[in-house]
Simulated scan of single mutants.
Amino acid sequence: MPRVATGESVVSRAVRVVEAFGIDDEALTVGDIARRTGLHVATASRLIEELVRVGWLERNGKDVRIGMRLWEIASRSSPTLGLREAAMPFMEDLHQVIGYDVQLAILEGTEVLFVERLSSPGEVVNYSRIAGRLPAHASSSGLVLLAHADPAGQELAMAAPMKAFTRNTIHTPAQLRTTLARIRREGYALCPGHIYADTTGIAAPVRGRDGTVVAALGLIMPNDDSAFAKVPAVQACARGISRVMASTSTRTS
């Protein structure tokens, strides 16, 4: 693999260019990408043109965007594709009945990664989005996933800095340990005002064929007295997804 004088391969630099795009970046300029990657502007420009030629990026004047070809490849090969397909009918039912944001998440280290979402614009403030991340300790979905993670993963989360979004956010190892034990005992997470004061997060575990928790189904709704009444619906949908995951795995194994 060709390398530059620093020893970094061309592929590594190309990856840096693609990863310069954040969740909120619809488009960047060459200068933006150069600054974020630490590459010389001429080098960044050359790599961008190569990536445009293969369809991984698109360029319109000064604007550089993620290309449809990259999206196509990522969507086709996503390891969460089966999970999302199993979950979507249940998510649609829950979204139609409850009327608030419904989301599906997996655990990535000390963060929760959202792989699917159905939203109701204007209903609630929701920081999550598809392919977006949040600290696991602050999210109802993240807490469910941490509660069922291996001990090493839990200890990693407890040792990491815990950002407090509001006064209700879990921010100490002792609080996190107690909360995870309660979630394992009760089978759900209910987090009023943990990320935004006016919203409540509810989440329940989704299990795979062997019974291990592979994802979390979450509901984001207003922070009011009706939140607890929505827990059984979230749990029922999570169990439904789990049944489909188990039967699909059995048929394809």
Score class of each variant (00 low, 15 high):
Arg84Gly: 08
Val18Lys: 05
Asn168His: 14
Pro151Tyr: 04
Glu26His: 14
Phe165Val: 09
Ala159His: 15
Leu156Thr: 15
Phe165Ala: 10
Val102Phe: 03
Gln235Glu: 05
Val125Arg: 12
Val112Ala: 00
Arg84Glu: 05
Val213Met: 12
Glu111Ile: 02
Asp101Pro: 03
Glu8Ile: 00
Asp225Cys: 09
Val64Lys: 11
Arg59Gln: 15
Gly208Leu: 03
Arg184His: 13
Met162Pro: 07
Leu81Trp: 06
Gln235Met: 08
Ala233Lys: 07
Thr199Pro: 02
Trp71Val: 05
Ser247Arg: 09
Glu58Phe: 13
His40Pro: 09
Glu58Met: 04
Gly38Asp: 13
Glu58Lys: 03
Ser128His: 07
Arg117Pro: 04
Thr6Cys: 13
Pro161Ile: 03
Leu47Ala: 04
Thr172Trp: 13
Arg36Trp: 10
Ser120His: 14
Ala5Asp: 11
Met88Cys: 05
Arg76Val: 07
Ala44Met: 07
Lys62Asn: 03
Glu155His: 13
Leu113Tyr: 10
Arg16Ile: 08
Arg117Ala: 10
Arg36Lys: 15
His137Cys: 14
Ala203His: 00
Asp198Gln: 15
Arg133Met: 07
Ala105Phe: 01
Val11Gly: 06
Ala86Thr: 12
Ser139Asn: 12
Ser249Gln: 11
Pro222Phe: 00
Arg35Ser: 13
Leu143Lys: 03
Ala138Cys: 11
Ala233Phe: 09
Ala136Gly: 02
Leu219Asn: 12
Arg239Met: 12
Phe21Val: 14
Ser226Pro: 03
Val124Ile: 04
Ala181Val: 08
Glu19Lys: 13
Arg209Trp: 08
Leu156Cys: 12
Val4Trp: 10
Ile73Ala: 08
Ala34Asn: 05
Gly142Thr: 05
Ala215Asp: 00
Pro192Met: 01
Arg76Cys: 06
Phe90Thr: 02
Gly211Lys: 09
Val206Met: 00
Met88Ala: 13
His171Phe: 05
Ile66Asn: 13
Ala20Ser: 15
Asp150Tyr: 07
Pro79Phe: 14
Val10Gly: 06
Trp71Tyr: 04
Ser120Glu: 15
Gly132Leu: 07
His137Trp: 12
Gly109Asn: 12
Leu134Phe: 05
Gly99Ile: 10
Ser139Gly: 12
Glu123Met: 11
Val125Tyr: 10
Ala74Ile: 11
Ala157Phe: 04
Ile130Lys: 15
Leu219Trp: 08
Arg177Gly: 06
Leu107Trp: 02
Gly109Ile: 09
Met158Leu: 14
Leu118Lys: 00
Ala42Val: 11
Val52Arg: 03
Ile195Pro: 06
Thr29Ile: 02
His148Arg: 02
Val206His: 01
Gln235Lys: 09
Thr250Glu: 15
Val213Asn: 08
Leu57Gly: 01
Pro161Gln: 04
Gly82Ala: 11
Glu108Phe: 05
Tyr100Met: 14
Leu39Ser: 00
Ile33Arg: 07
Leu113Ala: 10
Ile220Val: 14
Val15His: 07
Arg177Thr: 09
Asp225Phe: 10
Gly211Glu: 06
Thr172Ala: 12
Glu92His: 04
Ala227Val: 05
Thr250Pro: 04
Ser249Asn: 09
Ile195His: 06
Ser141Leu: 01
Gly38Phe: 11
Ile106Trp: 06
Leu107Val: 03
Ile195Met: 13
Gly218Met: 01
Leu156Glu: 15
Ile106Asn: 14
Gln103Ile: 01
Thr37Cys: 12
Asp25Tyr: 10
Leu94Tyr: 07
Ala42Gln: 10
Ala149Pro: 02
Glu26Arg: 13
His194Arg: 04
Phe114Arg: 00
Glu123Thr: 11
